[in-house]
Design a protein around this nucleic acid. Structure first.
Lengths: 238, 238
DNA sequence: AAATATTTGTCCGTATGTATT
DNA sequence: TAATACATACGGACAAATATT
């Protein structure tokens, strides 16, 4: 906890408590130490701790009850596998019953140089852009911006809208199987659009995955840009 | 840019500029837009932009020259592969000539339940703890906390101190080859210790990798906890 | 049942940091 | 550089709900 860093003490404390919960230090429904105890631990006034707790209550991470204490509301991190057969729908199997994909936006645009390079096409060629939001147990987990070559996948947005699944939409376009060619992972602060889509507070972190999927013949079919709410997931590689 | 979030405007702007640079929006040695232009783009006063730039100059990300402009000092992100054969020394080959590992601390302690579980031993058994700092071109990239079963690797701290390499130290303990069994990746705000070790400013992000290495026979030999400065690296999976 | 302790919620005032003009 | 408005952080006092003895 440092002062005069441009980050308010109450926010630093809120971030640390949120991290402790995500890291398993406090189980769900467990009671948190009292305001006085936390204030002493962080070396601040009780009111400052109260600001931190208030922010986490607004986020839905904590619940405070007068006379009783403050309770943890949220669950552990979800685990996502990153590998050749990564698919959102399979990733959550066994961890939750209610995974859901929503089509946020779609449209057609021309490829910029980075995307064209990844997909192995010429810059300026037409692409279908599909923005998806994924939720588990009604909690937003990730937003993804997907690009598909328009020549081959001109109808894919409609299929996604109908099936709410990229895998199913690709199948409808004749791609029975596909695999992950590569994935790169970075982390950064969530921008305004991601914060809104994922219901995150300012200063929140996203894990940013960039990936290329290829069909059975090895032809690039999908360039994906996924932002995961960092305190709701962990990625596993194997 | 939002107000009343506990994060000062000048810090939000500094974070966004740092991210743009790490993401490749501004190349190294390129000139930044003027203070007035930036102030307009972020919707703030010129003084606020000046605070943000001053912070980035202190960090070494930017260099301001009176009458000429503000210049980008820092390089692109380093790429690290995550996979069965992940080793720090090989990871940086071809990207930089001067990678370096430093032994920060070492000691012996008893295994907590999480670490014991990962290594397949009983909680309370003795472990050797080895803390390493990795630098590339004199810039700190990651800190790692490694645990080895003391029974088999009691001397490993000395070997690491001498060779400055985990791979070489394991070889000295009779492990000629080893591989990565699994890796999990999360992201979070850097804590005080990590900020100090990696020369990060408050609010900075670390990519946190947890990994298990096994020897040729499949026996767990190393449990590692690596924190990468998020704006200096990207992880690739393939 | 009643008194006491503990915990969160609300109010006051004061000093400093942040952002604008 | 200075003046202004607002956010942050502190300190204390007390109220309200709950738990404990």
């Amino acid at each position: 906890m440092e002062r005069q860093t441009g980050i308010a003490m109450w926010r630093q404390i809120a971030d640390e408590i949120r991290q402790s919960i995500a890291g398993g230090e406090y189980a769900a429904r467990e009671i948190l130490p009292g305001e006085m105890a936390l204030a002493e631990r962080f070396g601040v006034n009780r009111h400052t701790v109260r600001s931190a707790i208030a922010a986490l209550v607004r986020e839905g991470v904590l619940r405070a009850e007068r006379g009783r204490g403050t309770f943890v509301e949220k669950r552990d991190r979800l685990r996502f596998r990153v590998g050749p057969r990564t698919r959102f729908s399979e990733g959550i199997a066994g961890q939750s019953s209610s995974g859901e994909g929503r089509l946020l936006r779609s449209g057609t645009e021309e490829a910029d140089s980075v995307t064209a390079d990844a997909l192995g096409i010429a810059a300026g060629e037409k692409l279908v852009r599909v923005e998806m939001l994924y939720l588990v147990d009604r909690i937003p987990i990730s937003v993804a911006t997907n690009f598909f070559p328009a020549e081959r996948f001109g109808d894919i947005a409609g299929h996604v809208r109908r099936t709410r699944s990229i895998t199913a939409a690709l199948a409808a376009c004749g791609v029975g199987d596909y695999s992950r060619k590569w994935t790169t992972i970075t982390a950064r602060h969530a921008d305004t659009a991601d914060r809104q889509a994922l219901s995150l507070s300012p200063g929140a972190i996203v894990l940013h995955g960039t990936a290329l999927n290829v069909d059975a013949a090895g032809t690039a079919i999908q360039y994906a840009n996924t932002r995961f709410a960092a305190d709701r997931v962990e990625l596993t590689v194997d």
